[in-house]
């Protein structure tokens, strides 16, 4: 299974216990897989392969199907990302208000291209489809926080808040 090219670190005993708790909590509700994956993602910030193996056994769902589901949705990560994930919107309403320039400013400030992590492991820069705050376009999300009405010169100040 090509969940990750490099083998993820082995989860601790307490982490595995957490995984089992999450499975137990959702096991009996109809359609438990997405709620379980959401809970795992919240716990580990990505979906570790070992955890998914336990989910497969615990929910009696083939691991191949779980991989198919986990890789389908953009909010689920199959590899650890940097400490902060920046999701920049480039849908039409943001595009029209100058998202391109904002994304270029992000790339320049971070020294990475879209889709890459900074070398110090602090930021991942991703493109995102609409994040639903088009009234304040162009907008980006850093982790759970939204920043709107952006101009390129605001980028360094926003990034500084995460240092």
């Amino acid at each position: 299974m090509a969940v990750a090219t490099k083998k993820p670190s082995v989860l601790s005993k307490s982490a595995l216990a957490k995984v089992d708790q999450i499975i137990a909590r959702h096991k009996d509700q109809p359609g438990p897989l997405l709620p379980v994956l959401h809970a795992l993602q919240a716990e580990f910030k990505y979906l570790p392969e070992e955890a998914l193996v336990r989910v497969a056994i615990g929910l009696d769902i083939p691991l191949s199907k779980i991989y198919g589901v986990a890789s389908f949705y953009t909010l689920f990560n199959l590899r650890p990302k940097a400490e902060h994930v920046i999701r920049a919107c480039e849908s039409a309403p943001c595009h029209v208000r100058g998202a391109k320039e904002v994304i270029e400013a992000l790339e320049n400030a971070l020294g990475v291209k879209v889709g890459e992590d900074t070398r110090d492991g602090r930021f991942t820069l991703e493109l995102s489809s609409c994040i639903g705050v088009c009234g304040v376009a162009p907008a980006i999300m850093i982790d759970d926080e939204v920043f709107g009405n952006l101009t390129p010169d605001m980028v360094p100040g926003i990034l500084a808040r995460f240092n």
């Binding site: 943001c94 609409c130 009234g135």
Partner: peptide, 11 residues
């Protein structure tokens, strides 16, 4: 599941 770019009414 309001995903249409430019739409944020349901939110």
């Amino acid at each position: 599941d309001e995903g249409e770019p430019g739409t944020f009414k349901d939110r």
